[in-house]
């Protein structure tokens, strides 16, 4: 059984149909990429499965448990962490407070301290800026903080929304290296990206989303050579 199973999911914004029945699955230990152009419904998909948006119909199952009727704060507790688009960090709080808040759903003090060490090890720059106000960090550091914060909930799966957005090429590579290392440590990753080339290069499988429907899917290594994908998303 797949870890995360999405079936015939439909989501509306009022009259507008944002998702018109999409189905996909994520198995434990995989890195799955969801690629597509602006307005394809990638962020909508993530927001629905983390409970921020309500689903019109269809199902989202996580380890067999239905999520579409579960409130957002309970979904995090079940082991799904969300790195929202556009580095949504808590601007006026310190880096440390941001990370502490990431572990909000947990009560194990020792485990939290352990994970804090792990995050600082993974992102040494955050350790240097521990007591700095998060809004004063650079774009790349803010993205790292958002990722570190998500890891603090010790998730089984981490869903990331456009982690490379607005970052310099060097930082983009750094972020993708971190995603690979997160996966290596045993956390499943669902990645939404516009940077299709980079996303495909680090993921196992991928789905291509177009105006609310999945039009292509398969192994990332196959899709990267697919003529259609090349033309539409890789700019070749």
């Amino acid at each position: 059984m797949a870890m995360l199973e999405i079936k015939d999911l439909c989501v509306n914004y009022g009259m507008i149909k944002a998702l018109k029945g999409i189905s996909f699955e994520v198995n434990e230990g995989e890195v799955i990429a969801l690629i597509g152009a602006n307005g394809a419904g990638k962020t909508t998909t993530l927001h629905t499965l983390t409970g921020i948006l309500p689903a019109k119909s269809g199902s989202v199952r996580f380890n067999g448990v239905e999520l579409t009727k579960t409130p957002a704060h309970k979904i995090v507790k079940m082991g799904i962490a969300h790195v929202p688009e556009g580095r949504r960090i808590f601007q006026q709080l310190t880096v440390l407070d941001n990370l502490k808040l990431g572990a909000f759903t947990r009560n194990d003090k020792d485990g939290i301290a352990e994970d804090m060490e792990m995050v600082y090890k993974r992102f040494p720059r955050l350790a240097e800026r521990k007591s700095q106000i998060a809004g004063t960090l650079s774009g790349g550091e803010q993205q790292m903080l958002a990722m570190g914060r998500a890891l603090m909930s010790r998730p089984k799966i981490i869903v990331m929304d456009e982690p490379s957005m607005g970052l310099s090429p060097i930082l983009v590579s750094e972020i993708f290296d971190i995603i690979t290392s997160i996966r290596k440590d045993g956390t499943t990753v669902l990645l939404v990206e516009q940077n299709a080339k980079k996303a495909l290069s680090i993921s196992d499988r991928a789905y291509v989303l177009e105006t609310g429907k999945i039009t292509l899917s398969g192994k990332a290594s196959d899709l990267i050579n697919d003529e259609q994908v090349k033309k539409a998303y890789l700019g070749e």
């Binding site: 983390t50 409970g51 921020i52 409130p71 957002a72 704060h73 309970k74 979904i75 995090v76 507790k77 962490a81 969300h82 790195v83 929202p84 949504r88 960090i89 808590f90 601007q91 006026q92 709080l93 407070d97 502490k100 808040l101 990431g102 909000f104 759903t105 958002a146 914060r149 998500a150 909930s153």
Partner: peptide
């Protein structure tokens, strides 16, 4: 307190606060 931090995180960013599992 922990509660106070949670409240300020809602002020700073609602979606992020939801994404870390806060009952807003």
């Amino acid at each position: 307190s922990r509660t106070g931090r949670a409240v300020m995180s809602i002020r700073d960013n609602r979606i992020a606060a939801e994404s870390i599992g806060l009952n807003i």
